[in-house]
């Protein structure tokens, strides 16, 4: 186990450095982030030069990279060109919203997809199965923003049950913490519902197919032939064996949390890291983009690590390797 851990940490570290280098170069290949200012009548060439100097863009590439990595290990993600503020602060302003929206949503949708997926996989070919499969297919292939806007249109505009935008009512001051929480939840409910709904239905098909695969295995036939109760076969034979691929796919959804839910955030004007990353790419805000990728890489590595540990826990074969 110790050797396993050391090896994992070692490879993770290499992955991390390689990813940083690639992102660093890729970002810089998109061109000059201050280029757009050249056609702005109020900006003089001297201003562009001074801004470049302030953000270290005038230095040679290798120097910028070394600086960046050194600062990174000091926990300094640099300054955002666009926000003119430390990258860490900017991400931290948005991250709580994203985590609060995505962790419960992913957890709930994973749970639903897992439990219901096993049930309908077990009953493959029945009418229940085909209903779920067609709805799942339909939702999976619907453009997400369209789905979100339809929900918004029905619940917020027509029924006026939920607000149209934001994470809290703008400018409202709250005398009690409870007021704030209820206002927050009121704004939270629709994005949460849409994300969970779509997440559940798109993962459902995967879980169901894995279960169907397992059902074709000989040991299932044997178990049924032995006369074991249906419930027992389902739980102990099918669900367990279907677990590994499911954990991989459903688990990895957590890793991309910082990537956020760009479309949810855009449609519901919900603050979060997804739009932040998107805007960073759009504005060629190198440091913000790098900072987000650093966090993303770390979370992918950590989640992968946890999944591997889970594997070892779930599957004895992995443990002894």
């Amino acid at each position: 186990m110790k050797a396993f851990l050391v090896r994992r940490i070692y490879t993770s570290f290499i992955t991390f450095i390689v990813v940083i280098a690639i992102v660093f170069l890729l970002a810089r290949m998109t061109g000059d982030p201050l280029a757009e200012l050249a056609n702005d009548p109020r900006i003089s060439p001297a201003t562009i030069a001074a801004l470049k100097a302030a953000f270290g863009l005038d230095r040679p590439l290798h120097e910028q990279f070394v600086n960046y990595v050194v600062n990174l290990f000091r926990g300094d993600l640099g300054y955002s060109l666009h926000y003119k503020a430390p990258v860490f602060d900017i991400i931290m302003q948005k991250l709580p919203y994203t985590l609060a929206l995505l962790i419960p949503s992913i957890t709930l949708s994973n749970y639903l997809a897992y439990t219901i997926g096993i049930e309908i996989g077990w009953r493959r070919g029945t009418r229940l199965d085909s209903v779920f499969m067609s709805v799942s297919m339909f939702i999976r292939s619907t453009p997400y923003f369209w789905l979100a806007i339809i929900f918004l249109f029905v619940f917020s505009v027509q029924l006026r049950l939920t607000p149209i935008f934001g994470a809290v009512t703008p400018g409202k001051s709250f005398s009690l913490t409870w007021d704030w929480i209820s206002d927050y939840l009121w704004h939270y409910i629709l994005p949460f519902f849409v994300m969970t709904f779509r997440g559940f239905l798109s993962e459902l098909i995967y879980v169901r197919n894995v279960v169907v695969d397992v059902l074709g295995e000989d040991f299932v036939t044997t178990a049924v032939a032995k006369g074991l109760p249906e419930k027992y076969v389902k739980r102990k034979y099918v669900a367990r064996n279907a677990m590994l691929p499911i954990v991989t796919v459903l688990g990895m959804r957590y890793a991309f949390i910082i990537d956020g839910a760009i479309q949810t955030e855009t449609v519901f004007s919900y603050p979060g890291t997804g739009r932040l990353v998107y805007e960073a790419i759009f504005n060629r805000d190198f440091w913000l983009l790098q900072g987000a990728v650093v966090i993303l890489t770390m979370s992918v590595i950590v989640v992968n690590f946890i999944i591997d540990l889970l594997y070892a826990y779930l599957d004895p074969r992995v443990r002894y390797r």
Binding site: I90, G171, T266, S269
Partner: peptide, 30 residues
């Protein structure tokens, strides 16, 4: 951040106070 900016009227503004009390600039991304 990412949601709104809020202002209140400056009641002592030298040209006379603005008539509205509060100004909120909200951000709608879609």
């Amino acid at each position: 951040s990412g949601q709104y900016v809020r202002f209140v009227a400056n009641k002592d503004y030298w040209m006379g106070r603005p008539c509205i009390d509060e100004l909120i600039l909200v951000i709608i991304t879609d």
